Structure formats: C-alpha cells, structure tokens
Computed example of a mutant assay.
Amino acid sequence: MSADLIGLFYGSSTCYTEMTAEKIQQALGNRVVLHNVAEDDVQQMEGYRFLIVGIPTWDYGELQEDWENVWDELSDLDLSNSLVACFGQGDQIGYPQWYQDALGYLHDKLALAGAKMVGYTTTSGHTFEESQGLTDDSSQFLGLALDDENQFELSEARLSNWLKQLEHEFSS
C-alpha cells in the first residue's frame, strides 16, 4: 500500500464490527482513519482513494441501523476514484439463510457509486444456506466474511490474510 490514508467506515451495534475496525487500524497503523457512520458524515468517503467499509448483517438479512440511517446518502457519492474493500460480520449458525447479506448490499451500493471493489475472499470454512454477499458465481464473498459469534478463533487469521491481500490490491 502507498502512503495514502485509508478511510475505514463502519457501523456497529454489538461491537464486533467496531472491534474488527480497531484491529485493522492497529495492524495498518496511523494510515487508517476510523469513521463510525453513526457519528461521521459518509460524504467524507469521497476524500479517500482507499476505503475499507464494515457492516454486520442484522437479524434476517437486514442492514445495521447506522448504515440504514445513511443508506440514501450513499447514492449521492462519487467513488469513481476509489478502491473499496468491504468486511462483514454475520452469524452463520443463527441466520444461515441470510449470512453476510448486508456485506453484499453495501458492496453493491458502493459499486453503483463508481467504486472499484476489491478484497473478495473464499467461502471455504463457512457453513451457511444462502447469502447476498457472494459473487455472481457464488465462489467468493464480496469482501471479508467474519463470524465472531461462532468462529472467533478463525477471525484473526482471516483478517491477517485479508490485510495482506489488500496490501497487494491497493498497490496494483
């Protein structure tokens, strides 16, 4: 990755997504500027060439409330000069039909705003029935999929590998 700052925008209701955002900032250092979408204007996304966005899937495939509150504003963004990677938190045991749905919704919304989307990851090691967070051929998640509720012990390695992947994708 270059010396450019990375804007990390997240919404979090149960702290898992916020904790992941903080782990990313810790791993990448002061290059990452955290923005909680409950407090910061999403218009600030336009000021970053590199973006990481985090969202949990809530209940039955719903948006997390802070993202839902700014959802319409995302349509007004011009992210045509941005590389964007998404990460999501989900519960593959309690909500296997909606696992990582919000990840897919956010990915698609930002792609419509012109962003070049990066950071896709394997579905290997996840057990679920359906997801809106998959590529068209269902071979990958549209970002980093985490389940700290049921697979917390796997999250550190998944995150570490993803950050290495982003280092390459952000520098290409």
Rank of each mutant, 00 (worst) to 15 (best):
N36Y: 09
V37P: 04
A38K: 01
A38Y: 05
A38D: 03
A38R: 00
E39S: 11
Q43Y: 10
Q43A: 14
Q44L: 12
Q44M: 12
M45L: 15
E46G: 15
E46R: 02
E46M: 09
G47D: 14
R49Y: 10
R49Q: 15
R49F: 12
L51K: 00
I52W: 06
I52L: 10
V53F: 08
V53T: 11
V53G: 09
V53R: 02
G54R: 09
P56F: 10
P56M: 06
T57A: 05
T57P: 04
W58E: 04
D59S: 13
E62L: 10
L63M: 15
Q64A: 08
Q64F: 06
E65K: 15
D66A: 13
W67A: 11
E68V: 13
E68D: 15
E68I: 14
N69V: 03
W71V: 10
E73I: 03
E73P: 00
E73A: 08
S75D: 14
D76W: 02
D76Y: 01
D76P: 01
D78T: 09
L79W: 01
S80H: 12
S80A: 04
S82A: 14
V84K: 01
V84G: 02
A85Y: 06
C86E: 10
F87S: 12
F87E: 03
Q89C: 10
Q89H: 02
Q89E: 15
Q89V: 14
Q89Y: 12
G90T: 00
G90D: 01
G90P: 00
D91I: 09
I93D: 10
I93E: 15
I93Q: 11
I93L: 10
I93F: 07
G94L: 12
G94T: 08
P96Y: 05
P96T: 02
P96C: 03
P96V: 04
W98S: 04
W98R: 00
Y99M: 11
Q100S: 02
Q100F: 04
D101P: 01
A102K: 12
L103S: 02
G104Y: 13
G104N: 06
G104Q: 07
H107F: 13
H107T: 14
D108K: 12
K109T: 06
A111K: 05
A111N: 04
A113S: 03
A113T: 08
K116S: 10
M117E: 03
M117L: 09
V118H: 00
G119W: 03
Y120D: 02
T121K: 01
T121A: 03
T122F: 01
T123C: 00
S124A: 08
G125Q: 09
G125H: 11
H126Y: 00
H126G: 01
T127P: 02
T127Y: 08
F128S: 04
E129V: 07
E130D: 09
E130V: 03
E130L: 14
S131K: 05
Q132M: 14
G133M: 13
L134K: 10
L134R: 06
T135V: 13
T135C: 15
